[in-house]
Amino acid sequence: MKRYPYFKTLFKYLILIVGLVIFAGPLLWLILTMLKTRGQTLAYPPEWFPSPITFDGFVRLFENLPLFGRWIFNSFVVSTTFAVGTVLSSSIVAFGFARTKARYKFVFFSIVLATLMVPEQITLIPLFIIFKQIGWYDTWLPLIVPAFFGNAYFIFLFRQFFLSIPFSLDEATYMDGGNLWTVYRKVVMPLSLPALMTGFIFSFVESWTDFFTPFLFLQSETKYTISVGLQLLIGIQSQDVPALAAGAFISLLPIAVIYFFAQRYFVEGIVLSGTKG
């Protein structure tokens, strides 16, 4: 009877390790694959460990696709701008919903929430036609500009957070001769840094991992973001598995690094959105 809890813990770890194989195994395999020689990846039965460890996959990747570095740079520029735009605009709009008294506030907020439900594709093709007409096709503008007009999800998220900041601070700011704009800049924004960080990281990841929008709007290879470039790589180098793996690895590395350093913001985002409501 005394040994029972011990076995229970052991069993728990056993299941956790099975899960680890499922979730981390494919990533580990990717890393092993990119360090192999081409011959090793074609071997049957498969060879588990690279021997010798080689970075030739990376070399061939950059030789055959010299633009690969450019695509990563492009992704950084697009995703950072996208994230800054999203956080800035969404926080201003959310502030309006959280901190002003207005008659039709509820009506507008309901519309914000309703837009969350509507699938993007409805607007995608007409947007394509519009953007083409105004000369935005094959530029980054369709990927970036919409971010500066507020994202419904983050408006909702930030509003929840702003509401938790005591209103007495607003009064104090007015006493000191400030106005609503001062409240936004000096009170609400500094106190909401965790929520804003969450918003920044999530929108950065969203933009970085997005394939469809850049795929739809970008034509010149020099303007590609990493996801579209990687897709091109699959077509060109499907036979060169180590190079393919190296490309996939590079594309996910920045996100993984951000994740390991800013982990708490990822969990916070879920808690903030208060899914129970």
Partner: peptide, 26 residues
């Protein structure tokens, strides 16, 4: 931490990973 990581992998990279795993000699 590690269970969550795959969610952050760009979809195209996810497809690459599974193309490798599901390959003929995968």
């Amino acid at each position: 931490t590690l269970y969550y990581l795959p969610y952050l992998v760009p979809t195209v990279a996810t497809v690459v990973i599974w193309i490798i795993l599901y390959g003929k000699t995968g």
